Amino acid sequence: MSELVCELLGERLMDRDQAEVESSPLGCDGRLVALYFGCSWSASCKEFTAALADFYSRFKQGENGDKLEVVFISSDEEYKPWQEFVGQMPWLMLPLQDMERKCPPCRSLTRVLVETYRKIKEMGQKFEIVFVSADRSEESFKQYFNEMPWLAVPYTDEARRSRLNWNFSIQGIPTLLILDQEGKIVTRQGRPAVLNDIDCKEFPWHPKPVLELTESNALQLNERPSLVLFVDSEEEEFEPAKQLIQPIAEKIFSEHKAKDEDPPLLFFVAGEDDMTESLRDFTNLPDSAPLLTILDMSQRAKYVKDVEEITPAIVEEFVQAFLTEKLKPEPI
């Protein structure tokens, strides 16, 4: 783990006083490492930073305080606003001069995507990838693009790159959009789709109404409110749990697809693993299962349905009450 951390983040990071620290200890003793991607000019980042700092301080004071570290990776281009922003952070950070060559999720996705691209081409599918760079220099772009077998928008065409980011409302990287032949979005979740389908059996990855919550798709919880049904970890528990929420999930997806809109709610089934345990801890949820919840991370709110038995009718009633704003939120 230490070698992987050093490979992704480099051998040295900075602390809140901007003093150099070694990154290798992050991979020891079963620690979890949270990579926080953000920037100083985003109001939502500033709001989230304050919330994360509060959680971080409380967590560090607990019995497992040494089991988590946060590393901030900025998309700022200027030193002064970056310096002022990181001054508010109690965790570690990647030095600004290292940012343009360090985007661990980008590198990880690219390695998988190269193999995915090869497999889809061998399947005879009509498919192409176009890389839209967020690199800060043409030299960095050329070095990174050299690893890719597909096409790219020229780095010098900044207007086109900016227009694409604007048109598709790109909020962060890496983002992998899948478009159909008419240019309509098949899915915005190309990244978790690719990572969860190494054999490309589900290409072109049309969105599923109900997903199993995994490390690769958990970031979707931050995009919009999400219904999460927590169940026991046994494999046989997942399919019955999916059937409980499938009817209302399909109904909502169909209604909004007809309007060419994104659904207002995502649907997940979560088992028992380290990631799910961390999610329960972060949202202050009980350890009981099954447990029916709606998590709204952007509003730092949760909704919990405390019933002895969960049925499709109860799930639909719970969802409709949320969508019509009849539920009282609890703070996360």
Rank of each mutant, 00 (worst) to 15 (best):
M1L: 08
M1F: 07
C6M: 10
L8S: 09
G10S: 09
R12N: 08
L13N: 03
R16H: 10
V21M: 00
P25F: 05
D29L: 02
G30F: 05
R31L: 03
L32E: 02
L35E: 01
C45S: 07
E47N: 13
A50K: 11
L52Y: 08
R58E: 15
F59Q: 13
D66K: 09
K67T: 09
W82L: 14
Q83E: 13
Q88S: 14
Q88E: 14
M93Y: 01
L94K: 02
Q97A: 14
M99N: 13
P104V: 07
P104M: 08
C106G: 04
R107H: 12
S108Y: 11
V112C: 02
E115M: 00
K119M: 05
I129A: 09
V132I: 15
V132Q: 04
S133E: 05
R136M: 10
E139A: 08
E139G: 04
S140M: 10
S140N: 12
S140A: 15
F141V: 02
L164P: 00
S169Y: 07
S169H: 06
I170N: 01
I170F: 02
Q171D: 00
T175D: 07
L177W: 09
G183A: 05
D197V: 06
V210E: 01
E212M: 01
N217K: 12
A218W: 00
Q220E: 06
R224E: 07
R224K: 11
S226P: 06
S233D: 02
Q243A: 13
Q246Y: 04
E255I: 03
E261P: 00
A270T: 03
D274Y: 02
M275V: 07
S278T: 03
S278P: 00
R280L: 05
N284S: 13
M297I: 13
M297V: 14
S298Q: 15
R300T: 12
Y303L: 11
V304H: 01
E308I: 07
E309W: 00
E309T: 13
E316N: 00
E317Q: 12
